[in-house]
Amino acid sequence: MTEQEERTEQVETKENAGWEPKLIGFLCNWCSYAGADLAGSSRLKYPPNMRVVRVPCSGRVNPQFVMKAFERGFDGVLVAGCHPGDCHYSKGNYYTRRRLMLFKEFLEFMGIEPERFKFDWVSAAEGQKFAEVVGELTESVKRAGPFEGVCKR
């Protein structure tokens, strides 16, 4: 099975010395993505481990995005959107909040450490907060260690 072999390969590469967590972040276009931009243009220092996926609203984030990331071997996942009340589409983040609050707990139930998944609000003005959030996630993922896959063999 290629999928399987690839996963094994990923895990093996991770076990080599010098492992750096591979993170993925789903950022709302209107706030968190702009927040990330601000962090960049203000030359704030934060770990470079995250690949960013820009989404139109945190409401776009299907829990399947997060599942897929873990299934494909990412070590940690961030979802960030506008603060409650500030969603560009007025309520997208309220819906996503319900989904993801439940999903986060469920992931933990299935054996995926809560350290690997972060869900937070970052506004366009919060460049500093963005840098912190990424820093915190990177740190907590480092503590949890290389992710061995959604099913441990």
Binding site: P63, Q64, C151
Partner: peptide, 21 residues
């Protein structure tokens, strides 16, 4: 294709996780 049709534990995990959500 969100959940591959292969029956590896991971693909099955994906199917069941989604069904549960």
């Amino acid at each position: 294709i969100w959940a591959s049709k292969d029956t590896g534990a991971e693909s099955n995990w994906f199917f069941h996780m989604t069904r549960m959500m």
